[in-house]
Computed example of a mutant assay.
Amino acid sequence: MIVFRNLTKSYHVRGRRKTVASNINVIFPTGISVGLLGRNGAGKSTLLKIIAGATDPTSGEVISDGSVSFPVGFAGSFHPDMTGAQNTRFVARIYGADT
């Protein structure tokens, strides 16, 4: 299970504060698949990095009762020049899954 409690993440960009996650409260039960959808810069990768522990939230906390596996646990795992679908097929091939 992964729990976000009052999770907020902000960055300072060009002298301005950009908030990519604001006061998120959610529970992701063990064994459930969840997809993150959003535009470029919406904070999808940032949330994955926070779950993996590669980036700290500005405030709030992430609670997990399990371990984070590759590729989420490896902060550089998503190739920025590939689409989400291409990255997904790449990781599936690493695990030997049918793509």
Score class of each variant (00 low, 15 high):
Met1Phe: 02
Met1Glu: 13
Ile2Gln: 06
Ile2Gly: 01
Ile2Cys: 06
Val3Glu: 15
Val3Arg: 15
Val3His: 13
Phe4Met: 10
Phe4Val: 09
Arg5Ser: 11
Arg5Asp: 13
Lys9Val: 05
Lys9Thr: 08
Lys9Trp: 02
Tyr11Ala: 07
Tyr11Asp: 07
His12Thr: 14
His12Arg: 14
Val13Gly: 03
Gly15Gln: 04
Arg16Pro: 02
Arg17Ala: 04
Arg17Glu: 15
Lys18Glu: 12
Lys18Leu: 15
Val20Arg: 01
Ser22Val: 00
Ser22Ala: 10
Val26Leu: 15
Val26Arg: 15
Val26Thr: 11
Val26Lys: 12
Phe28Trp: 13
Pro29Val: 00
Ser33Tyr: 09
Val34Ala: 03
Val34Asn: 03
Leu36Asn: 12
Gly38Tyr: 06
Arg39Asn: 11
Arg39Asp: 12
Gly41Phe: 00
Gly41Tyr: 00
Ala42Ser: 13
Gly43Leu: 03
Gly43Ala: 05
Gly43Ile: 00
Lys44Cys: 02
Ser45Met: 01
Leu47Pro: 05
Lys49Phe: 10
Lys49Asp: 10
Ile50Gly: 00
Ile51Gln: 07
Ile51Lys: 08
Ala52Met: 10
Ala52Pro: 09
Gly53Tyr: 09
Gly53Cys: 07
Thr55Glu: 15
Pro57Thr: 02
Pro57Trp: 01
Pro57Gly: 04
Thr58Ile: 05
Gly60Pro: 02
Gly60Trp: 06
Glu61Cys: 10
Val62Glu: 07
Val62Asn: 08
Ile63Arg: 14
Ile63Gln: 15
Ile63Phe: 08
Asp65Gly: 15
Gly66Ser: 14
Ser67Gly: 15
Ser69Glu: 13
Ser69Ile: 06
Pro71His: 09
Gly73Arg: 12
Gly73Met: 03
Phe74Gln: 15
Ala75Asp: 08
Ser77Ile: 03
His79Trp: 06
His79Cys: 09
Thr83Trp: 03
Gly84Val: 01
Gln86Thr: 00
Gln86Asp: 10
Thr88Arg: 04
Thr88Val: 11
Val91Ile: 15
Val91Met: 10
Arg93Ile: 00
Ile94Asp: 04
Gly96Glu: 01
Ala97His: 12
Asp98Ile: 10
Asp98Arg: 13
Asp98Val: 12
